[in-house]
């Protein structure tokens, strides 16, 4: 499956949109990491566990609770947001 992913500026230094391949959000992120290896440490707390400030949407829909296992279809748009909720 071919999808586009938009990455929050914190992840890649500037807002980036790129083509990724994969049948789940996790696969697509793994594909994006091939292009931007540094993003792995910024979005994962540990392997398979996203950091609390990351939230992922597919075509505007929240992916929680499946999150990394959320299915991705051809032409989907994945949005990876970063927000700081603490005060």
């Amino acid at each position: 499956m071919s999808a586009t992913i938009t990455l929050h500026p914190y992840i890649t230094g500037a807002e980036i949109q790129l083509e990724v391949n994969g049948s789940t959000v996790g696969d697509c992120i793994a594909d994006a990491i091939k292009t931007y290896p540094a993003m792995e440490g910024k979005i994962f707390a540990k392997p398979g566990k996203l950091k609390g400030y990351v939230e992922i949407y597919v075509n505007g829909n929240p992916t929680v609770p499946k999150e990394l296992d959320y299915p991705v279809n051809d032409g989907d748009h994945i949005n990876l947001l970063v927000y700081l909720a603490g005060g």
Partner: peptide, 20 residues
């Protein structure tokens, strides 16, 4: 405009005082 309202993460967040 910046964030969708249905943000899901509701966890105790790590924080240093000097950051705040």
């Amino acid at each position: 405009c910046l964030l969708p309202r249905d943000l899901s993460k509701k966890e105790t967040f790590p924080i240093f005082g000097a950051t705040a």
